[in-house]
């Protein structure tokens, strides 16, 4: 029982970065922009979050917001490349990863942020609520970002499905021609989607350092950006499915340290492989079912140019 409580109460903080990242990716890809640079945006967010805490002082919430903002700054560059210059989105995404790896490593070294622990952001104490057996620690024992994430999902759902601009955002990923003919601005919509998406990816990265690790080292995201991309495919660009995916992966990641803590002897490197193996299996499974195609935004990965003549 204790094992279960410990495990489940840890799931949200493992799931939150996935949930935030997938949310950002879905907003971005719904506009028709394939973002393979997720890992890079997460890294930039993670470093910025840590940097704020180390250099500016103990303001964890500001750190998280700045993490998102710095990822958005990189998003500006990404948007410039893929939306304005119409660079191949695969290449541009990979460049973002490479660039972010180099940049974060260089900046953190120059600023002296590497391997410096900080206090970060703790869990909220709801007093007696947290003391409720089982449910208390699982539901009321989380940090504030977890609750904000849930709120963000609700807001995003409203934004995407219940506003005119959300309607345009979805339309621009399906048929930019239709949006253009309707008088919408394809360039602006895609830029907006990229910036919002990058912000959430950055927040996911900030969460990794500010809340989870409470330290910065090079490459701390450890491939989570890539898992986030796979999760988007798993979620088929649907918000509610992405929560399921994020929680699923949170469960796996939270299980690994728990099992070790209770002394279960396991080949640790095989356990560490698990999320990646599961992701591949999930992709195979969802393509075997074959209903993947119709959910993919039709214009995903295709640059838009009005004057193109066929």
């Amino acid at each position: 029982m204790d094992f279960l409580v410990f495990w489940l109460s840890n799931v949200p903080s493992f799931a939150a970065p996935f949930a935030l990242g997938v949310l950002g990716m879905i907003i971005c890809e719904r506009s028709g922009v394939l973002n393979l640079g997720a890992e890079g945006f997460v890294l930039v967010g993670a470093m910025s979050g840590a940097g704020v805490l180390i250099s500016l002082g103990d303001y964890p919430l500001s750190a998280i917001i700045i993490a998102g903002a710095s990822a958005s700054a990189l998003g500006l560059l990404f948007g410039f490349l893929v939306v304005l210059l119409r660079v191949n989105q695969v290449i541009a995404g990979l460049i973002m990863v490479f660039l972010a790896q180099g940049l974060t490593s260089l900046i953190s070294r120059n600023m002296g942020w590497v391997n410096k622990p900080f206090s970060g952001l703790g869990r909220i104490d709801f007093g007696f609520l947290t003391d409720i057996p089982f449910l208390g620690p699982v539901i009321f024992g989380q940090d504030i970002i977890v609750y904000i994430t849930i709120l963000l999902y609700i807001l995003s759902f409203y934004f995407i499905y219940r506003t005119n601009i959300g309607l345009r955002l979805r339309a621009v990923g399906e048929n930019p021609d239709a949006v253009d003919a309707a008088g919408g601005n394809v360039i602006l919509l895609r830029f907006m989607a990229i910036l919002i998406g990058a912000f959430f990816l950055g927040v996911a990265g900030g969460y990794l350092t500010v809340v989870v690790a409470k330290i910065w080292v090079d490459g701390i995201s450890g491939g989570r950006g890539w898992i986030i991309i796979a999760l988007v495919i798993f979620a088929r660009w649907q918000l509610w499915r992405s929560i399921i995916g994020a929680v699923l992966f949170g469960c796996i990641e939270a299980l690994i340290p728990r099992l070790a803590a209770v002394g279960v002897q396991l080949p640790q490197y095989f356990i560490l492989m698990l999320p990646y193996v599961v992701t591949i299996l999930v992709m195979i499974w969802s393509n075997l079912k074959g209903n993947n195609k119709q959910d993919t935004p039709l214009a995903l990965g295709r640059p838009y140019l009005r004057e193109e003549r066929h």
Binding site: L81, L84, L85, R86, V87, N88, I91, A92, I95, F98, L99, Q101, G102, L103, T104, S105, L106, R109, D218
Partner: peptide, 24 residues
């Protein structure tokens, strides 16, 4: 100079970015 080796990565990325952008 204690410049992290990631700098090399960064330079590669910047050059490729400029070349990819120039195709426009």
């Amino acid at each position: 100079y204690q410049i992290p080796f990631a700098m090399v990565q960064l330079i590669q990325a910047i050059i490729v970015m400029c070349v990819a952008g120039s195709e426009f």
